[in-house]
């Protein structure tokens, strides 16, 4: 999980380089943020030291807030 998270976060400076040169900055920024968030969520759920998906689902369901 640590390695996977580190690899995912290492994309941040590279994304910064892309943003610095890109004309469609806004679109790339929101797409990148969304992709990073989904990947980190996946790592949290299925990584080796993760919370069991059922527990995570139960917690998110118990919260029942948007």
């Amino acid at each position: 999980m640590t390695i996977a998270t580190t690899l995912a976060l290492q994309s941040v400076p590279f994304a910064g380089l892309v943003f610095a040169r890109s004309k469609n900055w806004d679109l790339f920024a929101v797409a990148y943020l969304s992709a990073l968030g989904l990947i980190l969520t996946l790592i949290t759920l299925v990584g080796d030291a993760s919370l069991a998906p059922a527990d995570f689902a139960a917690i998110t369901e118990a919260l029942t807030t948007n």
């Binding site: 759920l45 069991a52 998906p53 059922a54 689902a57 998110t60």
Partner: peptide
Amino acid sequence: RAAIQFAFT
């Protein structure tokens, strides 16, 4: 239930 609940996650 765990596998079905994962869909909610």
